[in-house]
Write a protein that binds this DNA or RNA. Structure first.
Lengths: 297, 297
DNA sequence: TAAAAATACTCCATAGGTATTTTAT
DNA sequence: ATAAAATACCTATGGAGTATTTTTA
């Protein structure tokens, strides 16, 4: 059985007449008769009662017609779904992000606009450190991640820059410089630094260390923070001073002040990481949303 | 697009490999590639990503596959429904009956057994007189009718005999013969008769008149009953005597007695009438149920 | 680079066309 | 008697086969 048989069957059923049906289809009457006969032979059922003035559906034909119409509806639906699938309307997107990335206003904005544009895509969000994120991108456990990359792309990872945030100094409120409006990094010579573990985010770590060195400061690590977002808390209890990406100053941590840096300050990059071999339309659409949100800025 | 394209598509999707899919279908790999390409061209969508080690569904392909599977389920369902339609499982059956026919135990038995055997057939029941029933069979307003036919088939009607019921005398309880166990028709000489209008059921009417004549009685019509089932009521108020098919003695009418007839008594025939050109399976099944119920007796 | 899919072509099965007969009322 | 479907037979499109080249990670 082919759809051709079913198309012909519908034509004869609707015209009630083989000759007119053949005309409508655009073939001659004998091959139409032959195709209908083939269909009847396959079903082992008579679909039409041949009358002297045309052909009428048998009860079997009536029952068959109702379901054949559904077949063609389903065929059309399948085509539509293929197109929508190609447009990336279905499937899932597993997004990861480092804690500090979530403070950039673009991150929730991008996720929200993607969700609105592709409501049928199942989104999952996971907060991990940059090292874990890169591993999971490589192993394809997640599809895209907001990370803090270095100036050069990690191996086997595709990077799309999202933002470059200035960094700010974090001081305990009791610190001798806490009342300034802005300070140079050089004024923090010999102050113990609170920094996240290099393991978890080596690029930002190196950027910070290098920034201090450029300002003539030889950094002294006073305390390792388990993650960037907890640096301010450690500064509040006077374990040292630090610098963090500017958006993190939005956290309301009692006992600390955030000060802009005067002069050559380290900058925190924010990027989206994806797998270079990920040809999924959903991921491509997500990167498209990232680009759109960057342009709007 | 033909079902062939969809069958091939499923094979490639399931095998993840054109060569193996072609093998499974039983064709060579190049024509399979060509058919899949035709399908992709028609849908204007890439269904497979061609990899160095086979082919993987694209997102469009995934979405399409899910719906194509439904198409084949629907094709199978349509086949099943055609077979069930051919078996007369669907449609409707409009049954008519004369009031007096309903008293024969076979009538409800036949209708009940048909309903049980074909629960999806929509049954309608209408009580009419024999003349109206025959007209509606001819005009195909009803499909089958329990009627009281004469010894010869009416014109343009197909008759299937169901029962031949003996007739019984109906007397008012105060009648001089009411205390007898059985009487001959000849004992009703000169008694006014209560009879239904000849218009409504000429065959039974003639049978009754002829029966009286055979017994040497010249019938005198005392009262015309609107229908056979009301004869007993008219006898009860002493408008005359009558004879009715034996099953009607089951009606509980105060003031009358039913007596068997001694000797040559008229017999009331009960038959199913159908249209001779009715080739419907439902009607055929109904006649089959009639036959089955006759055999069981 | 190597396995798999796509091309290029050839062939033939069958969908479709033409002429005619059969059917059903 | 007549319109319509079936049959018989022919034609040709396109589905499928074979040999080879191209593609892709």
């Amino acid at each position: 059985m082919e759809l051709r048989h079913l198309r012909y069957f519908i034509a004869v059923a609707e015209e009630g007449n083989f000759r007119r049906a053949a005309e409508r289809i655009g073939i001659a009457q004998p091959p139409l008769s032959s195709q209908i006969k083939d269909l009847e032979d396959e079903l082992e059922v008579q679909l039409f009662r041949r009358l002297p003035r045309g052909a009428a559906l048998t009860e079997a034909g009536e029952a068959f017609l109702a379901e054949v119409i559904v077949i063609f509806r389903q065929v059309e639906f399948a085509k539509q779904m293929a197109l929508r699938g190609a447009a990336g309307e279905f499937g899932r997107l597993r997004i990861g992000f480092t804690g500090s990335a979530a403070f950039n206003e673009l991150v929730p904005k991008i996720i929200r606009s993607f969700r609105k544009a592709y409501p049928s895509v199942a989104l999952t969000l996971a907060e991990l450190n940059t090292r874990q994120l890169l591993d999971q991108i490589r192993s394809r456990s997640i599809d895209a991640a907001f990370i803090r990359p270095g100036p050069t792309s990690p191996d086997g990872i595709k990077i799309t820059m999202v933002a470059e945030e200035p960094m700010m100094v974090v001081l305990p409120t009791g610190h001798r410089l806490a009342k300034e409006y802005a300070i140079p990094l050089s004024s923090l010579q010999d102050e113990p630094l609170v920094l996240h573990s290099r393991e978890l985010g080596p690029d930002l770590y190196d950027e910070v260390i290098e920034g201090f060195r450029r300002s003539g400061v030889d950094p002294v690590i006073g305390q390792i923070a388990p993650q960037i977002t907890s640096i301010a808390n450690l500064v509040a209890v006077e374990l040292g001073v630090s610098i963090v990406p500017a958006p993190l100053s939005a956290i309301n941590v009692p006992g600390v002040v955030f000060l802009p840096i005067i002069g050559d300050a380290p900058r925190a990059r924010l990027a989206v990481a994806t797998h270079p071999d990920d040809h999924s339309v959903v991921t491509r659409n997500f990167k498209q949303q990232v680009a759109t949100n960057l342009q709007k800025r």
